[in-house]
Nucleic acid binder design. Structure first.
Lengths: 224, 224
DNA sequence: CCCGGTCGGTGACCCAGGTCACACAAGTCC
DNA sequence: GGACTTGTGTGACCTGGGTCACCGACCGGG
């Protein structure tokens, strides 16, 4: 794919960019570039510096925090059409990354350098609203996350994760280990809960995947 | 105190406002008003609408989330010179309050109506930076909060809270119940931990107050 | 077809921390 | 100086969920 094509695809994926004035969009087009991450590659590390505003074109990255003990909490995942709102946090605050990120699969990004970002933030109301939109979304996501880790029993968090991970047909292609990582628990516990649900006919477990049989039932189980 | 005096005090408390252009500052002066909350009054409720950008002149408010079970987590407290960054979240996202707030003592606020807020956000880079500054600070606060609720043992969270609550002389004027609420636990547990620390000579407990005797020791106890 | 890595299942055990049920001490309001 | 309210101390108990130690099943490659 030529660079010009990549630029078009990028604008395709982020239609809101078209609200930029021609001049501003021109600046963006001229400075954007397109890094690619292999599966498992580190997108950025905790406390790393942020040199680009990142948007995701293809693939998926996982953003999480890790405790000294090695356990993790998932903050969010970014897929095609999403921006990595933590870069916003860094660029706006002048600080470093408050979490770390790893590509779950091969991931193609669009990256605007800091200078462009700052310039557009200063000059373009449309760009500001584009950026702030995702940023405020991140904020509200954090509140529900806080609720979950602070109050929700593990079952509920697992149910949520599972539902979030499932494709339209209700199949979630994840290992127990990955689920456990996402919700900050351990494999054994996840296996046990999944076992109970399978018993109850809510799900079916396969190697490397879980199929949701009774979506409603699962949502309800989670809820108490 | 006359209104004019209040305006002066307000600008005194928030010196960064002086970076606004005279015209913008004039708009702010013309529309700001000064609500007062009695101790225990509700500053705003969960899911409430936000009509003003709020800054705290005197007093203290507590912002927290509550579970269905009635347990709470403290998000942060705002004192003199602080802005209530959740109002920013509301105003920027166009949504409602993601948490609730109660005045811990008589609290005097400065309030800029939405219209002024929007206007200045659109026009004044200085105002934007003033607002975003606190907003990004909130964001990073949330990350450390997530860390704590997800990973830290209760002792550690209690130690932090206690240290945060203590005045320069090391006296924290709080009941066990309040501490428990802040960290999302229950009185009995807090009493027990406090008892152990008193035994170990780290603190001294009085009715309605805790005195920190060995600050360093307390910080260390928390840390593992 | 065998062999090593990745998954998943299961039981025994343990512990932080929440729940319940009191008893008691300090203020405080008449 | 009762009587009531608010803050605290403490023991008995329970349970979610993490830890440990395995074992067995599947899977892809030589």
């Amino acid at each position: 794919m030529t660079d010009a094509q990549k630029v078009e695809r990028w604008i395709d994926r982020f239609p809101l960019l078209q609200a930029l004035s021609p001049a501003h969009l021109q600046i963006a087009r001229g400075t954007v570039h397109f890094p690619v991450l292999d599966a498992g590659a580190v997108a950025y590390e905790l406390d790393g510096e942020c040199a680009n505003y990142l948007m995701c074109l293809e693939g998926r990255t996982r953003i999480f925090r890790m405790s000294e003990g090695g356990r993790e909490v998932l903050i969010y995942k970014v897929g095609p059409g999403g921006t990595c709102a933590l870069t916003t946090q860094c660029l706006l605050s002048g600080g470093n990354f408050p979490a770390q990120s790893i590509a779950e699969e091969r991931t193609e990004l669009a990256a605007l350098p800091v200078s462009t970002f700052q310039h557009l933030m200063g000059e373009s109301a449309a760009f500001r609203s584009f950026v702030m939109d995702d940023y405020t979304r991140l904020m509200s996501g954090l509140f529900t996350l806080i609720d979950e880790v602070a109050f929700a029993p593990l079952k509920q968090r697992l149910a949520h994760r599972l539902l979030a991970e499932a494709d339209p047909r209700g199949v979630a292609a994840v290992t127990h280990q990955k689920l456990a990582d996402d919700i900050g628990s351990v494999r054994e516990v996840v296996s046990r809960i999944l076992g109970q649900w399978a018993e109850a006919g809510l799900i079916e477990v396969r190697r490397g995947a879980v199929e949701i049989v009774d979506r409603a039932g699962l949502e309800a189980t989670g809820r108490k």
